[in-house]
């Protein structure tokens, strides 16, 4: 499948501060991406550039073959669920859903009302009086009821308890199966989405650190544990991203091409190889 979104050499500076530096990354049609990064890494800046909130300092962003900058046609194909609230303050949820119906080309109002019921959202309430969780739910419902080929979600599950998050993931996957399109989900709850996203895009201090299928990342990353000097022997010449020691017992996390993993050597050194979770790998790769 072709690319729906291409970000070509995009930088954004605010005064003297570089928020994003020379980002080159593309997103394919019909895939779910996780946009991951530490606080202040530049995730929201990137989403804001895609959606015409700010202009990139250099580079270009293409949707299909069109630039997204000041381009209503391109923007009409993007649905952006922001962490911030952009809605008129006095609107009830129902009014918001109806105005979304007027705003988006193909907004499924019936589906939206059905979701509101499933999430037990009171549509008669004013948006500004909603709890953080129900604010998120309202925004989720709007995003899922559009049929924009590109949907950006910035922290979609903010303020949702574990049970409601689980319900969201189920409804989200059902929605994706009915209407496959490209989702870019920015979240800090990495472990929860690790099975749901197909590829991870990691931004670190304004730079693109990596873009890879999650499964591939999880095969490249692994922990080796055992007697400290044996672990050191195994680690020689490998890319060690983290290391921990308790007494004489050492655990290291390695990130390298799968073909370089050497189970035999590890076994001969009496070392244990265990898988690493995406969240841990992310923490180690982004520098702690």
């Amino acid at each position: 499948m072709g690319n729906i979104l291409e970000i070509n050499n995009v930088s954004k500076t605010y005064g003297k501060t570089a928020a994003l530096e020379a980002i080159n990354v593309s997103f394919e049609e019909g895939k779910i991406y996780g946009l991951l990064g530490r606080n202040g890494a530049g995730k929201t800046t990137l989403l804001n550039l895609i959606t015409n909130k700010f202009e990139a300092t250099t580079g270009e962003i293409l949707l299909g073959k069109e630039s997204v900058w000041e381009n209503p046609n391109a923007q009409s194909k993007i649905c952006y669920m922001t962490e911030k609230n952009m809605f008129p303050k006095e609107f009830t949820v129902l009014q918001l859903l109806k105005s979304s119906f007027d705003f988006y080309e193909n907004f499924d109002l019936e589906y939206a009302l059905n979701l509101a019921e499933q999430f037990k959202l009171n549509i008669g309430k004013k948006f500004k009086t909603l709890s953080k969780g129900f604010e998120s739910i309202t925004k989720i419902i709007i995003a899922l009821s559009t049929d924009c080929p590109l949907v950006l979600m910035d922290e979609p599950v903010l303020g949702l308890d574990a049970a409601v998050r689980d319900k969201f993931y189920r409804i989200f996957l059902d929605n994706f199966a009915r209407k496959p399109r490209t989702f870019i989900i920015s979240t800090h709850l990495i472990e929860e989405v690790s099975g749901i996203i197909e590829e991870a895009v990691i931004i670190d201090s304004g730079r693109l650190l990596l873009k890879k299928p999650v499964e591939e990342m999880l095969q490249m990353g692994y922990c080796v544990a055992g007697k400290s000097n044996n672990v050191d022997k195994y680690a020689e010449g490998r890319k060690v991203v983290h290391s921990e020691m308790v007494g004489n017992f050492k655990t290291i996390t390695i990130y390298e091409p799968v073909s370089q993993r050497d189970n035999q050597t590890a076994a001969s050194l009496d070392l244990e190889i265990v898988p690493v979770q995406l969240q841990k790998l992310f923490v180690h790769l982004t520098g702690d």
Partner: peptide, 14 residues
């Protein structure tokens, strides 16, 4: 695969 995706909360491609 859709049913599996939804019930296990996994990407349908997986």
């Amino acid at each position: 695969t859709t049913q599996m995706s939804v019930s296990y909360r996994i990407n349908p491609a997986t």
